[in-house]
């Protein structure tokens, strides 16, 4: 079965280019026969994940794999990681600085939104090691 893989790099604190990976992913999906509402969900999750790497994480990458049944979005970074991922997953929980809030980020809804918009969601994080989030979107039987 053919699978398409792409990798994008995400740079720490690079707000100017933040979003490029997600836009790239979006454009790949659009040229394929993927339902626009799924593309929408992948785009939202990709962007939230990308922003988290830029704001809280470190240098990281966004990997996407598309086959005939699934889209797998894998976002990882080698930043500070988190001690308590359950806490981080809570709606409204955020450690974003005031500066980030000024810029319109840090509502603490990123991780909950990613979980809500994906069909499978898995987060792995360890202090000092980094964070990895894996999301799966089913192309055959999807949410909504």
């Amino acid at each position: 079965m053919a699978a398409l893989k792409k990798e994008y790099h995400i740079n720490k604190n690079d707000f100017i280019r933040a979003g490029e990976a997600s836009i790239g992913v979006k454009n790949v999906l659009k040229s394929l026969d993927v339902d626009p509402s799924i593309i929408r969900r992948v785009a939202i999750c990709g962007y939230e994940g990308e922003m988290n790497v830029v704001m809280h994480g470190g240098t990281g990458k966004l990997n996407i794999e598309i086959n005939s049944t699934n889209i797998v979005l894998d976002i990882s970074d080698n930043g500070p990681g988190m001690a308590n991922t359950e806490l981080a997953m809570e709606r409204g929980y955020s450690t974003a600085t005031d500066e980030y809030r000024e810029m319109g980020f840090g509502a603490g809804m990123g991780l909950p939104n990613m979980e809500k918009n994906s069909d499978e969601f898995k987060i792995d994080s360890a202090v000092g090691k980094g964070t990895r989030i894996r999301m799966v979107f089913s192309l055959t039987h999807s949410k909504e």
């Binding site: 053919a2 699978a3 398409l4 790949v28 040229s31 394929l32 026969d33 993927v34």
Partner: peptide, 11 residues
């Protein structure tokens, strides 16, 4: 809209 491509074509 353009005709969608297959994964193979995109590769």
């Amino acid at each position: 809209r353009k005709k969608p491509l297959s994964i193979e074509s995109l590769q």
